[in-house]
């Protein structure tokens, strides 16, 4: 045993401190220690994207980040996406466009898509499909997910000053 490490991070605009073992992943700590269950585990080896979070502005698979590596990082999870005024345009588009069925993949897709639209609000279908290739969905066939991202992108472009 090597004891536990104290880690200081910012999660969803809140300062968070936690203790963890070196072998624990960020995903594990988010879920089992911080009870932020919105971040999902589908594979624990980087292949499904269900555990996607935004860390220092980039999407990462939180199953492939050690919790100790989160020291000093800024992290956004699905719990930090909705605004006080209501849902994020992506969440709204997923909801209205029936872009979820079972919904287990949805948090990962919303975060991945947000990171894309924040950089490239005019991403087209090909770009969206490429960007989201690390997020597996078994229910939808991706059609309505891609359409929802296109729609949210359009709305975000229109809202932007």
């Amino acid at each position: 045993m090597t004891g536990r490490t104290h880690v200081h991070t910012s999660i969803n605009d809140t300062d968070v401190d936690f203790l963890c073992e070196s072998r624990q992943s960020l995903l594990e700590v988010l879920r089992d220690v911080l009870w932020l269950f919105g971040t999902k585990e589908g594979c624990n080896d980087g292949n499904c994207g269900a555990c996607t979070v935004i860390m220092d502005g980039r999407i990462v698979d939180s199953c492939l980040v050690l919790a100790v590596e989160a020291e000093g990082k800024t992290i956004t999870t699905i719990e930090g996406i909705a605004q006080a005024e209501g849902l994020h345009p992506l969440q709204q588009a997923f909801l209205e466009g029936d872009a979820l069925q079972c919904g287990i993949c949805t948090p990962g897709f919303v975060l991945a898509a947000k990171a894309l639209l924040d950089r490239e609000p005019d991403a087209d279908e090909t770009r969206i499909r490429h960007w989201l290739a690390g997020n597996l969905c078994r229910c939808t066939g991706y059609d309505k997910i891609v359409r929802a991202v296109l729609k949210a992108g359009k709305e975000m472009r229109e809202e932007a000053p």
């Binding site: 860390m55 698979d61 690390g134």
Partner: peptide
């Protein structure tokens, strides 16, 4: 190499 997520790391 991998996904956008994997390429971040």
């Amino acid at each position: 190499i991998g996904s956008i997520q994997v390429q971040s790391r």
